[in-house]
Design a protein around this nucleic acid. Structure first.
Lengths: 149, 149
DNA sequence: TACATTTGCATGTATATACATTTAATACAA
DNA sequence: TTGTATTAAATGTATATACATGCAAATGTA
C-alpha cells in the first residue's frame, strides 16, 4: 500500500524525502509485528537481538562493548539489556580475568532453548512480513546497503 | 557498506531475514542523523513529525486521534507529544465545541517559523543521507510500498 | 428517560533510546 | 614510579514506545 495513503499525506517533496519516511514507517510496521511475536515469551525485540548475537559466538564469551558494536541500534544500552537477560536466567555475566574492566557475557542453555523455540515462528513471520519475491528482496537489500554509503 | 560487515554477522539465513534486519539497521542510521539535526532546536524526530502533520492541515485544526493515525509510529502517544509541543509554545490545544471529548490541535506561528528554519537543513541532509541516484530511490520506494502488502 | 456501550483523551507503568556522568582498571608518558 | 589519559562498564536523567486502565462525553437501545 502506498505510503501516502497509509499516513494520509498528499505527496512528498521528492523521492528522497519519501524514502526517509518510508524506511521509518516500514521499521515501525516490522517492530510492531515482532513485538506481538516476542511478547508471549517475555522478550523485547532488542533483548532477542542480543541473544542472537550471543548465540553467534558459539560458546565463546563476548564483552559488553562488543555486543554494543553489533547491535542494530548503536545508541541502545547493552549494559542494561544484559542485566535484564541475566535476571531471566538467559545469560551469564562474569568479570574478565585478563582485563578486570571488561565483563564476559555468555548465553545459557535456557537462552539457547528459548531461541530454538522462537526460531521457526520467526522465520515464518519474516517471510509473511515481506510481500516481495526473491528477486525483489535481493534488490531491496542491495539498495539499503548502498543507501548508507 | 554491506550489513554483514557493519554488524559483524557472517551471513543471514536468507534474503528475507537479512531484509528485516537491514530495515531496522537503516532506520537507526537515519534516526541517529536526524537526532543530531533536531537537537539544537530542542525537538525530537517524533515531535518534528507531529509538527509536520499539523502544518499539512493548512490552518485547520486536527484532533489528537487523527494525529495518531498519521504518525509514523502507530503506537506512539500523540497526547503526550502534543503536551510537550504545547509547553514549548509550538501548538495550541483547545476543546472541540462540537464534541467535548475531542481536542483540536493547531500549529502556532512560532511552530511554523521553526519548521521553516529547519526545512532547508533537512532537505540537504536527506539527500546526503541516501547515497542512491534518482532511479534507485524510486525503486526503493516501490519495493518498500510493496513489501508491506 | 435510563442504562449499557463506545469513543476520545489522559495517565500510569515497564521497557528502550539518547546522551552525560561516574567509577574503576589499564595504558602511557614524564 | 607517578601522574595523566584512556577505556569499559554502570548509572542517572529525559524522552519515547508499548500497552493497560481510567474517566468523561457521546451514542445506542430498551
Amino acid at each position: 500500500m502506498r505510503l501516502e495513503d497509509e499516513i494520509q499525506q498528499k505527496e512528498f517533496k521528492d523521492d528522497y524525502n519519501k524514502a526517509i519516511v518510508n524506511i521509518l514507517f516500514t521499521q515501525s510496521y516490522i517492530v510492531t509485528k515482532q513485538n506481538n511475536l516476542f511478547k508471549p515469551y517475555g522478550l523485547s525485540p532488542e533483548q532477542y537481538n542480543v541473544l542472537r548475537i550471543l548465540r553467534g559466538q558459539n560458546g565463546n564469551p563476548i564483552t559488553v562493548s562488543s555486543i554494543q558494536d553489533r547491535m542494530l541500534n548503536k545508541m541502545s544500552n547493552a549494559s542494561r539489556l544484559v542485566e535484564k537477560l541475566k535476571q531471566k536466567g538467559l545469560v551469564l555475566r562474569e568479570e574478565c580475568p585478563a582485563d578486570r574492566r571488561q565483563v564476559d557475557i555468555m548465553i545459557t542453555e535456557k537462552g539457547l532453548q528459548l531461541l530454538n523455540q522462537l526460531q521457526e515462528e520467526i522465520l515464518n513471520q519474516n517471510n509473511n512480513l515481506i510481500q516481495l519475491n526473491q528477486e525483489e528482496v535481493s534488490q531491496l537489500n542491495f539498495l539499503l546497503d548502498k543507501l548508507r554509503g
